[in-house]
Simulated assay, not measured.
Amino acid sequence: MRAVITLLASLCVAVPCLSGDSLTPAGRWSGNAKFTSSVFGADDPVFFGEFDIRVDLTIYGDVAGSAPENQCVFTGKATPVSPGSSVAALALTVSGCANPGYNGRYEGRMTPTSSERANFQVTSVNFDRALAGAARRTSIASSLRR
C-alpha cells in the first residue's frame, strides 16, 4: 500500500493532480444543474433548462460527464487552482446537446464544500452572428453530490 501511495505522489509531482484528501474533487458527482444564457445582460428564456448531470473527475484531471436528458456530453481537464488546493479549475467542451446553444467551450471551477458535496460552475462566452456579434454568455451551475 505504501508503494502505491508513493507512486501516486510521484506521478502527481510530474503531472498536476487533484488533491487526494477528503475534499478532493476527484470522483463521481451528480446533481441537478441550471443551464442559463444571457445576451446584453438579459436572460434568454430559450436557453433556460434544468437537467440532471453526471461528472467524473480522475486524480489526473480528466473530466467526462453528461446531461443525458439534454443529450449533452462533457469532456475536458481539471487542474488544481494552486498546489495542494481542493478547488479545481475546469476547461470543458460541451457537445451533442439537443439545444445546440449549449454546445461550446466552458471554463470554471469545481469547489468541494464537504467530502460529499461540491459547487460546480462553468461559463462559455460566444459571439452570436445572429445577434449582430453580441456576446452570448451561457452558464451551467449545480450543487453536486457524490
Score class of each variant (00 low, 15 high):
120 F>C: 02
85 S>A: 13
78 A>F: 08
102 Y>D: 07
115 S>I: 00
22 S>E: 15
67 A>G: 15
63 V>R: 06
103 N>T: 02
121 Q>C: 07
77 K>E: 15
100 P>K: 06
105 R>V: 12
128 D>V: 14
38 S>N: 10
133 G>C: 04
43 D>N: 13
101 G>R: 00
78 A>N: 04
34 K>I: 13
12 C>Q: 12
105 R>M: 07
64 A>W: 11
144 L>N: 04
32 N>M: 11
58 T>P: 01
120 F>S: 03
84 G>L: 06
144 L>F: 05
123 T>I: 09
78 A>C: 01
118 A>S: 11
18 L>M: 13
62 D>C: 03
49 G>E: 14
14 A>V: 11
53 I>L: 08
49 G>N: 15
35 F>A: 07
37 S>L: 03
77 K>Y: 10
8 L>W: 09
2 R>S: 13
75 T>H: 05
98 A>H: 10
109 R>W: 12
20 G>T: 11
29 W>R: 00
60 Y>V: 09
126 N>Y: 01
23 L>M: 15
85 S>N: 05
3 A>G: 04
125 V>M: 09
64 A>V: 15
144 L>S: 05
34 K>S: 12
88 A>F: 08
16 P>C: 04
118 A>M: 05
51 F>E: 13
78 A>E: 06
69 E>R: 13
31 G>N: 10
7 L>E: 09
83 P>H: 02
4 V>F: 10
60 Y>C: 06
90 L>H: 06
26 A>H: 06
40 F>I: 07
61 G>W: 06
54 R>A: 13
14 A>F: 12
20 G>L: 14
49 G>T: 13
97 C>D: 12
61 G>P: 01
137 R>Q: 11
33 A>N: 05
81 V>M: 02
89 A>G: 06
28 R>T: 14
131 L>K: 11
73 V>C: 07
133 G>H: 03
6 T>A: 14
80 P>V: 01
134 A>E: 13
103 N>Q: 03
54 R>N: 11
87 V>W: 04
137 R>W: 02
36 T>N: 10
27 G>R: 03
128 D>A: 12
123 T>Y: 00
110 M>D: 03
77 K>I: 09
118 A>F: 08
103 N>E: 09
51 F>R: 07
16 P>A: 03
9 A>T: 15
39 V>P: 01
38 S>P: 00
27 G>C: 00
75 T>A: 10
